[in-house]
Design a binder for these strands. Structure first.
Lengths: 199, 199
DNA sequence: CGACAGATTGTGGATATCCACAATTAATCC
DNA sequence: GGATTAATTGTGGATATCCACAATCTGTCG
């Protein structure tokens, strides 16, 4: 529930105006005067979205965006610019920016975009969280259990699995029961569906 | 393998130049002098991509794009424009356009975009085809078989399924065997994985 | 009415899975 | 050396699934 609009712009007047606008619509807003200060003050745990001016002293908005991409951060980014051109906008969007807005902008339009971006982030964090939970369960499996799981997901009988792994059927049964327990499923079908949620 | 670049532009000089460029790189190219003539001459079976000028007499490129979206056609679209602005580009890309290129453009760049678009279309058509094949198999199921399938995918035992549907276990077994046969799977796990490919 | 498809059920046997009870071996950690 | 963890195997019984052989009932189509 820690969702917050992060606003990076080197123009104090714009920071104040936008900050006021967003807060008047019930959005929590954190401002930063530069890309560097954002990188210093933000951690990936803080969700929401990023309102990013392009032309700034120091690191530009586009550079900051690239940094976040490389880091693997998936915070939705809305670019704000007074001097954007078409290739720049196209490039940003194709790289995954959420939106690209020219100043001056319509207040209501912007707020709507921000709300959409925050909603997207909420959704992405939910799926990422369930994916993390799945991964942590997978890590708790022993290597043998993982091998057995793969063969189960290949639709093979315990008998066949035992043959392929050169162990007894009984051992396969034990591994099977243990990994089902660790993964929190009751049947092979549930396991299969769990695995296909993120793959 | 019917993949073709479709070029819609009302300027004959551009049509000729681009057509020549694309064909010199081994791409088959079909030109149209207007959005209307494209709609009249193209069918969804013909894959590839669409190079679309925005400003044209009659229906504009953007209007044609909207038409294709409404129809559900997923042909990758590359917009070409000499008078594009940022909001227009942003809007087009957010609606799913593949790219948005300003004239004059670099020949190599454009050819690369076209190749990427054609590749995307090839991929999309492949997944759409496997999805169609799955759907046609689903349609061959009787309503009872579909009910049983749902419960199987919920990870339930035949016994439980029989209870819920108020029929005997033997009947469930029969439906189960029949639907596995029709869906082309041998186990519940395979069925589960088949269903999760497109969902 | 006869043909056909879909849904239904039964019997019985071969296979598979599920699981409690019980135990051995090997490697690692403290 | 003792504790822990992972991997391994066995027995035996309760459940489930798989499947061939067989049959009844209903509704639709021509």
């Amino acid at each position: 529930m820690t969702h917050q609009v992060h606003l990076v712009d080197d123009d104090e007047a714009i920071r104040d105006a936008l900050s006021w606008l967003l807060q008047s619509r019930g959005l929590t807003c954190q401002t930063y005067p530069s890309a560097e200060s954002f990188l210093a003050g933000w951690t990936a745990e803080v969700g929401g979205c990023l309102l990013l001016d392009i032309r700034m002293g120091g690191m530009s908005g586009l550079e900051l965006f690239e940094r976040l991409l490389i880091r693997g951060n998936r915070l939705p980014v809305i670019f704000l610019t007074g001097h954007g051109d078409v290739p720049m906008a196209v490039s940003a969007l194709k790289k995954g920016a959420f939106d690209f807005v020219e100043k001056p902008f319509d207040d209501n339009e912007l707020v709507n975009r921000v709300l959409e971006a925050v909603q997207l982030d909420t959704y992405q964090r939910a799926t990422a969280a369930s994916c993390d939970s799945l991964n942590s369960r997978l890590e708790r499996l022993t290597s043998r259990e993982r091998q057995v799981m793969e063969l189960i997901l290949a639709g093979k009988f315990n008998k066949v699995i035992a043959d392929e792994l050169q162990i007894s059927m009984r051992t396969v049964e034990v591994h099977r029961a243990n990994l089902f327990e660790k993964m929190g499923v009751r049947t092979a079908v549930e396991l299969s569906q769990l695995m296909s949620t993120r793959n």
